[in-house]
Design a protein around this nucleic acid. Sequence first.
DNA 1: CGCTCCCGCCAATTC
DNA 2: GAATTGGCGGGAGCG
Length: 376
Amino acid sequence: MASLHDSESKNPNSSIYSRKDKSLGVLCSNFLRLYNREGVECIGLDNAANQLGVERRRIYDIVNILESVGVLTRKAKNQYNWKGFTAIPLALEVLRKKAFTDNYKVSHYCSFASDGTENDSRNSFNSSNSNIDRNNTKSSGSSKSENNRKEKSLGLLTQNFIKLFISSNADLISLDTAATALLGDVHDPTAMRTKVRRLYDIANVFQSMNLLEKVRHPESGKPAFRWLGVKGYPGSKASPLDATNSKQRAFGTDITNSVDLKRNHTDSVSDWSSKDVTVAMHGNIDFLKVECDENITGQRSSKEFVFGPFTPATAHKVGTSGNKKLKLDQDWENLADIYRPQYRNKALIDLLGHYSGAWKSWYVEAAEKKQIKSAS
DNA sequence: CGCTCCCGCCAATTC
DNA sequence: GAATTGGCGGGAGCG
């Protein structure tokens, strides 16, 4: 039904081109919509670029950001594994811990209380290694920072940006502030501009995922961002924007049982991730069904799971659980081909808005699942 | 006119 | 040495 194929006439010359239609945020939404559905496990960059109708370069942006929050993981050249949103909590939890371990002194930066305490030129923030899974610190010899490239990667920046939020008690952070903090010192206007540009990119995709919210700062009136993290709206038990059809499965069983009005920024993440999620993840596996067959142990039986609102409108039921995943890849490609979203497609845009809303309501729903349950 | 941030050049990395 | 990745910032769109 209301699918998004380009039903209308082909609309030859896309009349109204808007820069916005090409934003990373929109692209991210499309990307998510395209891959966040059951059965998806591997993503080919070429395919993605084609389906989404953008150059490869943009895919890298999206993928890098998504990877830094666990939604994807690199599998091989041109290949990524889809982990899904269920992986976000854990990723955030890890970040939170890391942030503490590394002892981010964000507040320090946020308040602009500068004092030249750091001992070296460019500072800590970036260099705070991200994932040193390699315990063998080959820090031998030159600390020359040859790995400069890596340190400046979008992925790392993304994680640091997040850390900034979850490890500080600042509710609102402007990109300038963030950039300043992330840059450590460096009073270089050029570096600053570049950093801010990147932050805009990140902020856009996070906004599309509803992890971040852009608001106007009360006084200054300047734009700033608020970290929503995994629990969308804290205090507001508010009205789920039109609970997009009831079909949505309320997210596993008990995932968010602690949501509530914690309203404490510091653990906004843990609310969703730490305890509950952990439990949920171990508790009912079927809850996270997106994974790669490779290492799957086999039975996990039925229960096709659809993650929240991004449920494909026309999803074909996998029904018989999955052994057929082998050729799923192929099917997927074909199927995707049919859709072929186009930015110019007005209908698509609308639809995306719809999904965005759905995603939002999903949060609310998760937060109130208890009530919902008793609602009957 | 200043905030956003798309676009794609081209260097670093990886096959 | 070709193909992938992806930093980077010019400069255009938009409010």
